Measured scan of single mutants.
Amino acid sequence: RSRTTFTAEQLEELEKAFERTHYPDIYTREELAQRTKLTEARVQVWFSNRRARWRK
């Protein structure tokens, strides 16, 4: 699998969701996946990476 490139629109959606919760449940992730046209797995990994960046 090659590296996922996120569009500005996708990042906006993901960042907005991250402001609400750092640990979205499966329903939230599924909804985000549909809205951003990404897979739920990509959304999950993005949140994991985003939390790592947030901790630094």
Results as ranks from 00 to 15, higher is better:
residue 35 R to E: 04
residue 24 P to G: 01
residue 16 K to T: 09
residue 30 E to Q: 12
residue 31 E to N: 06
residue 44 Q to T: 13
residue 29 R to C: 10
residue 13 E to R: 02
residue 35 R to V: 10
residue 1 R to M: 15
residue 49 N to F: 07
residue 49 N to R: 06
residue 41 A to I: 00
residue 47 F to I: 02
residue 4 T to K: 12
residue 38 L to A: 05
residue 36 T to Q: 00
residue 14 L to F: 02
residue 11 L to S: 14
residue 40 E to C: 08
residue 40 E to S: 07
residue 26 I to H: 11
residue 46 W to V: 00
residue 27 Y to D: 11
residue 49 N to E: 12
residue 27 Y to A: 15
residue 39 T to G: 04
residue 8 A to T: 11
residue 15 E to P: 00
residue 38 L to N: 04
residue 19 E to P: 01
residue 32 L to Q: 03
residue 42 R to V: 15
residue 25 D to I: 01
residue 24 P to T: 01
residue 28 T to F: 12
residue 18 F to C: 01
residue 35 R to Y: 05
residue 31 E to Q: 08
residue 7 T to I: 03
residue 13 E to M: 10
residue 17 A to E: 15
residue 44 Q to N: 15
residue 12 E to C: 05
residue 27 Y to I: 13
residue 17 A to L: 10
residue 53 R to P: 04
residue 40 E to N: 06
residue 7 T to Q: 13
residue 52 A to K: 07
residue 54 W to K: 09
residue 46 W to R: 02
residue 44 Q to V: 08
residue 39 T to N: 05
residue 34 Q to R: 11
residue 10 Q to W: 02
residue 36 T to E: 01
residue 40 E to H: 15
residue 19 E to A: 14
residue 13 E to F: 05
residue 51 R to T: 01
residue 34 Q to L: 11
residue 24 P to H: 00
residue 25 D to L: 00
residue 55 R to G: 08
residue 53 R to W: 07
residue 35 R to N: 06
residue 12 E to P: 02
residue 54 W to T: 10
residue 28 T to K: 01
residue 2 S to K: 03
residue 28 T to Y: 12
residue 8 A to R: 12
residue 46 W to N: 02
residue 30 E to D: 12
residue 48 S to Q: 07
residue 53 R to D: 14
residue 11 L to G: 03
residue 16 K to L: 09
residue 23 Y to S: 06
residue 42 R to K: 15
residue 41 A to E: 15
residue 43 V to C: 03
residue 55 R to F: 15
residue 2 S to N: 14
residue 13 E to K: 10
residue 12 E to Q: 13
residue 34 Q to I: 08
residue 37 K to G: 14
residue 21 T to L: 05
residue 5 T to G: 11
residue 14 L to W: 00
residue 38 L to F: 04
residue 31 E to S: 11
residue 22 H to R: 09
residue 23 Y to C: 02
residue 38 L to H: 05
residue 43 V to P: 00
residue 51 R to D: 03
residue 53 R to M: 15
residue 32 L to A: 01
residue 53 R to N: 08
residue 3 R to G: 14
residue 5 T to F: 13
residue 31 E to D: 06
residue 45 V to G: 10
residue 16 K to W: 09
residue 30 E to G: 13
residue 22 H to F: 00
residue 54 W to G: 13
residue 15 E to Q: 05
residue 20 R to V: 13
residue 4 T to N: 14
residue 16 K to H: 12
residue 23 Y to A: 08
residue 37 K to Y: 06
residue 30 E to T: 09
residue 49 N to T: 09
residue 29 R to F: 08
residue 27 Y to K: 14
residue 40 E to L: 08
residue 48 S to A: 10
residue 56 K to A: 12
residue 52 A to S: 08
residue 20 R to Q: 15
residue 33 A to G: 03
residue 11 L to N: 06
residue 26 I to T: 09
residue 33 A to E: 03
residue 13 E to S: 08
residue 29 R to I: 15
residue 9 E to T: 08
residue 1 R to F: 13
residue 30 E to P: 02
residue 29 R to T: 09
residue 28 T to V: 13
residue 23 Y to G: 02
residue 5 T to C: 11
residue 38 L to V: 08
residue 28 T to D: 12
residue 18 F to L: 01
residue 41 A to P: 06
residue 3 R to E: 13
residue 34 Q to Y: 10
residue 21 T to D: 13
residue 33 A to C: 04
residue 43 V to Q: 04
residue 17 A to K: 00
residue 50 R to L: 00
residue 21 T to K: 05
residue 17 A to S: 13
residue 32 L to S: 00
residue 34 Q to G: 09
residue 2 S to D: 14
residue 12 E to R: 13
residue 18 F to I: 00
residue 41 A to N: 11
residue 8 A to Y: 08
residue 39 T to K: 03
residue 16 K to G: 09
residue 21 T to P: 01
residue 51 R to A: 02
residue 45 V to P: 04
residue 6 F to S: 03
residue 20 R to A: 12
residue 48 S to T: 14
residue 22 H to A: 11
residue 38 L to I: 07
residue 45 V to S: 14
residue 17 A to N: 05
residue 29 R to W: 05
residue 50 R to V: 00
residue 53 R to Y: 12
residue 46 W to Q: 00
residue 19 E to I: 05
residue 34 Q to T: 09
residue 43 V to S: 03
residue 2 S to C: 03
residue 3 R to S: 13
residue 31 E to P: 00
residue 18 F to R: 01
residue 27 Y to N: 10
residue 35 R to K: 15
residue 25 D to S: 05
residue 5 T to H: 06
residue 9 E to N: 07
residue 24 P to K: 03
residue 54 W to L: 14
residue 14 L to A: 02
residue 7 T to F: 07
residue 54 W to N: 13
residue 10 Q to P: 01
residue 30 E to M: 15
residue 43 V to K: 00
residue 37 K to H: 10
residue 8 A to E: 15
residue 25 D to T: 05
residue 38 L to G: 03
residue 6 F to I: 07
residue 25 D to P: 01
residue 34 Q to H: 14
residue 41 A to H: 05
residue 7 T to V: 06
residue 28 T to S: 07
residue 50 R to A: 11
residue 9 E to H: 13
residue 8 A to F: 09
residue 35 R to P: 00
